[in-house]
């Protein structure tokens, strides 16, 4: 049974997932696959995510949980942007949990739907093309 109602097909877009809750990560991966994306890698802890970036992760976009077991994901977001990988945030806090410097970055409010993820991806891709 598919719950996917979106129409966009991202045709192999490689997404790097950073999310510390196993269930949430599994759901996001399922949504991404149904949108036609490929999971470049999934990191569930800050150090693990950092190591993947150090090793030169190959991805077209990253979806980052803002709070990774109490650690803030913003330093990792900065490094991904430097490497030309645009980011989408996901958070259980409201906008006040996002640093001012990052306002304007597409943000998924938990719990989010496939449509929300679709919109977030579309925003970063549109920004990249312009």
């Amino acid at each position: 049974m598919s719950l996917n109602t979106t129409t966009t097909n991202y045709d192999g877009l490689r997404v790097y997932v950073v999310e510390d809750e196993a269930l949430v990560a599994m759901n996001l991966e399922m949504i991404l696959e149904e949108l036609g994306c490929v999971i470049a890698a999934t990191a569930m802890r800050f150090d693990q995510a950092e190591q993947m970036i150090n090793e030169g992760i190959e991805a077209d976009v990253a979806i980052l949980d803002v709070n990774l077991g109490g650690l803030n994901v913003f330093p990792l977001a900065e490094r991904l942007i430097e490497r030309g990988i645009p980011v989408v945030f996901a958070t259980g806090y409201d906008e006040s949990g996002i640093d001012d410097a990052w306002h304007g970055t597409p943000t998924l409010q938990k719990p989010y739907t496939a449509e929300d993820v679709d919109r977030g991806l579309a925003m970063v891709l549109a920004a990249r093309q312009s």
Partner: peptide, 17 residues
Amino acid sequence: NHRVKNTLSAVQSIAAQ
């Protein structure tokens, strides 16, 4: 609020899967 959001996300994932 954060805890509720996380729990709802977990439930959402459990339901979907």
